[in-house]
Amino acid sequence: MTELGHVLYVDDEPDIREIASLALAGVGGLRVTLCSSGAEALTEIPQALPDMILLDVMMPMMDGPAVMAKLREDPATAGIPVVFLTAKAQAAEMQSYLRLGALGVIAKPFDPLALADQLKALWRRRPA
């Protein structure tokens, strides 16, 4: 079982992107690739092929679930686990993301010190 190494994070909020990047790279020691929109992520992911994709839900033009659906269509990216990081974190909403096939859902505001560990824990629990 390999350790989680490369996380690709997609969010339209630049401030949060910055915080998350610091939390994952600076605190968690992970390699982080940042994207500011769904469209950018869809071009980046097939090349970067990260271990895990961290997706914001509410984004203009293309929201998180739409991006995930596109990834599932491409066999090359279909297997990459997706974790949602979202401020739309009411219980029912979180359940609906899991039903879409997400590995996990992390609510905003998140703890920057624990974010990397949370992702690593999810990574370990991912289905074979």
Binding site: L22, A87, K108
Partner: peptide, 18 residues
């Protein structure tokens, strides 16, 4: 509203935590 409030809060809390 919850989403809109959480978004700046996420940035604030995250920055302060760091």
């Amino acid at each position: 509203v919850s989403h809109e409030l959480r978004t700046p809060l996420t940035a604030i809390a995250g920055a302060l935590d760091l």
